[in-house]
Design a protein around this nucleic acid. Structure first.
Length: 654
RNA sequence: GCUUUCGUGGCUCAAUGGUAGAGCACUUCACUCGUAAUGAAGGGGUUGUGGGUUCGAUUCCCAUCGAAAGCUCCA
């Protein structure tokens, strides 16, 4: 048999060989690093015996699938340790994940001390360096085997496997786990691992099921890599918007005001205001008209829209249908309000497309565990818009929305940080949606076509659509890797019917328009959170709540400092002055810590020459300069929304 | 909503079943200063809230509100 290796070389063997044997034949080093194999592109266990010609790569920790096998074995070590320390614990599942692995147990929850004990036990197990042995059992025997071992979750998993599936197990010493693999040959190579945390998780991810205890861990081949990862976890906490945003006085929360109701403070408002003005102006350039519609409506409206049936528990309802003549609800979206703006007069095909925009405050009654900083809140403001278009204009208008969204992302400097997702309906769950299958398939095809034409890479996700249509969601990850929707563009061929919207075509017939629901940028609160984390608080100058601070050397130069300040403000620059009787070093330190991009130091020299000494976070001390020259430069930077690279090292805050 | 953890001056944190302490910040005074912390003095907490146990609770128990991580959810 001929084995073609990654580098193109060919090995010939006269008898069947396991992947591990081949690795050993190539080199001892490779055999030591081997985690799994890849045969004709398919990941296999090191124990897999090859008997036909094929292409083989030996996967190590450097390969994604190899890393997964390595960490999966670490999760088995975790499970073995838990079973040794807590024999009554029942095993559920324990896969590898991006950042490591986890294992779910049905048992008492673990404290940090418990995790430390488990870690120590894992060390012992690894030191013993037990071999992992793979074996398979027929279905009935597999069930019986796990029943004898009193593992009800494993029994359930086996019962759900296809009838003809080969059921494999891995054994290390006394510990046996149902597992498809692949795994390392022994527990010995696991060099650097750490249990990160413990939390609850529902069995099979269903909240109706029992809550199990999940232990998260990670594992690396080198101690330094593990340390680097743990340091990274500490580091990202510093950019966490929920911490940094409060520290920088962008927002705060107050117990008595309520969950999910952050208070935006002056600096936070400044950033949001800047973005809002920019977006509103940009939309106007692109032919949008603006509406301003009520924050609440009678229940009747939501009954027409379908929200009363599909989304009532997510709304803040004012009043009681049993007792009150009128029941109101705070709006969770703007759609129907703008539809009634459309319906206020009769429309011709010549009027379309109509692009309505509104800076719209919405209310959603999220469950108490869902709220988070500025990213999941109960009241938020969004650059919401609805385009009422003729069916034949739909593709072009949809493209226009994507173009606007991408312009916004580009300008904010986050274009590279997003992924695009086509969110489709779930045909197996059709009662969650309105309209029939044909409409859904057609609109999904048309969105796909648009995305291909624009050459935007995207993934597809079943069951993520709105109840009235499929959509393109633009997703971003926060510092912890958790994904959120930043921008959404939704294709709606159905709601016009619900609201009896129409236009009159060339023939004088009434025709249903299509609707695009879209945001040009995510909600302002969430976008602010995203930018805080993206820039670690060092926002591009045009977004900074304070762009320049004037620092007089002593109180003697207050008058000149005030004069400089006034000129900056006259030019629309967000500037302040620090007139306190402090030393210049102190004022500079404070200004840097508050992340103000530019400082203008003024003293005797500057006053005599009518200049300023510039110090920026970009280049540090830049020396004396004419004030108008500086104003020209910064105004240009602000006008072009430039994202300047920060060259000056931030000194640690001690 | 569920599991776990947490809640001490504006912020970061310390402490003990026996009348709460530090640093930063704040206020006042002195210094009038040249590129990351000038010095001194002072004010500020019924330890999230409400109960209970106890001679005594900030510490132990219960409830409640809020926060963090994860799960579920996100029209």
């Amino acid at each position: 048999m001929k084995i073609t290796l990654k580098d193109g070389s060919v090995k010939e063997y006269s008898q069947p060989m396991s992947v591990m044997d081949i690795a050993m034949d190539i080199s001892q080093g490779l055999a030591r690093a081997a985690c799994a194999g890849s045969v004709n592109g398919e990941t296999v266990d090191l124990r897999t015996v090859l008997d036909k010609d094929c292409e083989l790569s030996i996967l190590t920790f450097e390969d994604e699938a190899g890393r997964a096998a390595y960490r999966h074995t670490a999760s088995h070590v975790l499970a073995e340790a838990v079973k040794q320390l807590y024999p009554q614990a029942k095993l559920a599942i324990g896969p590898s994940i991006d950042t490591g692995y986890y294992y779910d147990f049905d048992c008492e929850s673990f404290s940090r001390e418990d995790l430390d004990k488990i870690e120590a036990q894992m060390k012992k197990i690894i030191k013993e360096g037990k071999e992992l042995e793979k074996f398979t059992l027929p279905r009935e025997e597999a069930i019986q085997f796990m029943e004898e071992r009193q593992e009800p979750y494993k029994v359930e998993l086996i019962r759900d496997l296809p009838k003809d599936a080969v059921i494999s197990f891995y054994r290390q010493g006394d510990f046996v786990d149902l597992c498809a693999g692949p795994h390392l040959m022994s527990t010995k190579p696991i060099k650097a691992f750490k249990l990160i945390s413990s939390s609850g998780a529902y069995w099979r991810g269903n909240e109706k099921n029992k809550m199990l205890t999940r232990v998260y861990g990670t594992a690396y081949t080198k101690k330094e890599e593990l340390k680097a990862y743990l340091d990274h976890l500490e580091d990202i906490k510093k950019r966490d918007h929920n911490k940094l945003g409060r520290e920088m006085e962008l927002f705060t929360t107050v117990d008595v005001i309520g969950q999910g109701l952050p208070l935006l403070m002056p600096k936070g408002v400044s950033i949001i205001q800047t973005m809002q003005r920019w977006i509103e102006d940009e939309e106007e350039k692109r032919g949008y008209v603006r509406t301003k519609t009520p924050l609440m409506a009678k229940s009747d409206l939501y009954k027409i829209s379908g929200h009363w049936d599909h989304y009532k528990e997510g709304m803040f309802v004012l009043g009681d249908e049993e007792k009150d003549k009128e029941v109101f609800a705070l709006r969770p979206m703007t759609c129907p309000f703008q539809y009634y703006v459309y319906k206020a007069s009769q429309k011709s095909y010549r009027d379309l497309p109509l692009r309505y925009g509104e800076t719209s405050t919405l209310f959603r009654n999220e469950e108490s565990g869902e709220m988070h900083g500025l990213t999941r809140v109960r009241q938020f403001t969004i650059s919401e818009g609805h385009l009422i278009v003729r069916p034949d204009q739909m593709d072009e208008e949809f493209k226009g929305c994507l173009d606007l969204a991408r312009y916004c992302l580009r300008t904010l400097g986050v274009e590279e940080d997003v992924t695009y997702r086509l969110s489709k309906w779930d045909p197996d769950n059709s009662e969650k949606y309105i309209g029939d299958a044909a409409v859904w398939e057609e609109t999904q095809d048309r969105i796909r076509k648009v995305m291909h034409e624009l050459e935007i890479p995207f993934t597809e996700e079943v069951g993520e659509a709105a109840f009235y249509g499929p959509k393109v969601d633009i997703q971003a990850k926060n510092v912890y890797g958790k994904e959120d929707t930043m921008i959404t563009i939704q294709w709606d061929a159905l709601l016009a019917e619900q609201f009896d919207m129409y236009y009159v075509d060339q023939n004088g017939d009434k025709v249903r328009p299509y609707i695009i629901h879209r945001t040009s940028m995510g909600c302002y609160e969430r976008t602010l959170a995203w930018l805080i984390e993206k820039y670690a608080g060092l926002f591009p100058t045009w977004l900074c709540p304070e762009q320049v601070r004037v620092l007089p050397i002593s109180e003697k130069y207050s008058d000149y400092a005030n004069k400089v300040l006034q000129q900056l403000r006259d030019n629309g620059i967000k500037a302040t002055v620090d007139l306190r009787a402090e030393k210049i070093g102190y004022k500079i330190r404070e200004t840097r810590l508050q992340k103000v991009p530019y400082m203008l130091v003024v003293g005797q020299k500057e006053e005599e020459e009518q200049k300023v000494s510039l110090r920026s976070r970009y280049l540090g001390d830049e020396g004396m300069k004419g004030l108008s020259e500086f104003i020209d430069e910064i105004c240009k930077e602000i006008r072009t929304k430039e994202i300047r690279k920060i060259e000056v090292e931030e000194k640690a805050k001690s």
